[in-house]
Design a protein around this nucleic acid. Structure first.
Lengths: 232, 232
DNA sequence: ATTGTAAAGTAAACAGTGATTACTCTTTGA
DNA sequence: TCAAAGAGTAATCACTGTTTACTTTACAAT
């Protein structure tokens, strides 16, 4: 609607709105995003915000996209920071960074991977590519480990059910990634394991059962990578 | 407050309220529980519901407790139904039942393991024991498998980090369960894996990536059990 | 310098929400 | 028979997202 003389102040206002929304979430949970509350915090009335986001769901969608990108950035940064390490440790380190980001950015993680709002669900055409970006660093390291012999797939992790391999292969071809189906598949398994621990931890279900979640996480991930055939 | 002459009609009304709340959730998601809406559906005004649940959060807590018990019941039923099967298949079958319940009772699962409402979190003193009940069947089968030799723990799944073993051992002693720390620990790992797949599937993140989630789940669980040392 | 136009913001209102209070029936046990 | 307690209601408070109609502000071109 706007976009004429001063684009930057418009975008700055959008950024301010998102920042305050994030702050509200951090204080009172993902569902606490309130347009009227945001308005109050920046000396504006609620309807004025509609000049910047046509609806509350659009604001939330914007926050979700930011969240995915933040996670992807963190993983890429961890990957880059560990580039002198041997491949298995690098892969492990990126997975540790994954959980680290989730814990530090608690509500963002809940927002992007949880059940943020009433009937609201972010449009898949925006989330699916965003999700893919978050495990590109992982799947790439996995592929490198496979090719370099740092990971020699060991039964039962040396095979993929036919129907799934076909689907994964199609996705890889579609995206044009230089990746084997096995690297992709092992990443999916690792991803689900990582995610399960983080989610249970986040909602206070895991801590009471294992005590030190840090140690549990690292042990579980190392065990999984080992059982896949990682040579440390 | 009540509890005098006619307890049963009081409890029936409570049950009706919960049933309608569940129906509302099923239609419009976990956050769609509205006291006024429930009232409308049963020809009552909203304030009248406060005779049965002092606050909306108490109603939700009751629904959560029901949810945990429903899941636990389903697992116990699956366990019982499979009692002629060999132990590994029985364990596998119970884990399949876990996901089955989650998919059939979508919103109940989201309610008990997710982030149901604004700042709301069910009191831990009620959820923790309920959670424990849900994995009693699993941990028992795990112990039986270990003792019978159907599961011979294989590295790296034959050891537990010291601090965690200590915590788990204390929990076991506290509850007085006839269970080894290893059985408990392997259950925790399996639980987190199961949970990760279900949660990602539930919010439409996994399906697009692997296609047939049924197959992915069964393959992943079989692979995990195998790598732990299961003899099928 | 003035004017016209579009962007930015506001006030008021609508239809909801959970929760509380004060009140009225209705049933029942002594 | 009648007081007491249970069950329910109407009215109200303080919120929410959203829409509409209106006003202010600021800039660009005449």
């Amino acid at each position: 609607m706007p976009r004429q003389r001063d684009d930057t102040v418009y975008e700055e206002t959008q950024a301010t709105i998102k920042a305050i929304a994030r702050q509200q979430m951090a204080e009172d949970g993902t569902a606490a995003i309130s347009l009227r509350g945001i308005g109050r915090s920046m000396d504006m009335t609620a309807p004025a915000l509609y000049r910047y986001y046509p609806t509350r769901d659009d604001l939330i969608t914007a926050l979700i996209v930011d969240g995915f990108n933040g996670l992807a950035d963190a993983l890429e940064a961890a990957d880059a920071a560990l580039d002198t390490q041997p491949l298995p440790e690098r892969l492990f380190g990126v997975l540790v960074a994954y959980r680290q980001w989730a814990i530090v950015h608690r509500v963002d993680f809940q927002l992007i991977y949880g059940n943020p709002i009433p009937g609201f669900a972010a449009p898949r055409e925006v989330t699916v590519p965003a999700v893919i970006r978050t495990f590109v660093p992982v799947v790439r390291l996995m592929e490198m480990a496979l090719q370099s012999g740092a990971l020699v797939p060991k039964p039962p992790y040396d095979a993929i059910p036919a129907a799934i391999e076909q689907h994964e292969q199609a996705l890889i071809a579609e995206g044009g990634y230089p990746i084997s189906a096995l690297a992709y598949h092992l990443t999916m398994i690792g991803w689900t394991q990582v995610h399960g621990i983080i989610v249970l931890e986040m909602y206070e279900h895991l801590g009471p059962n294992v005590g030190d979640v840090d140690q549990f996480y690292e042990a579980a991930i190392r065990a999984l990578l080992t059982s896949m055939g990682t040579r440390w």
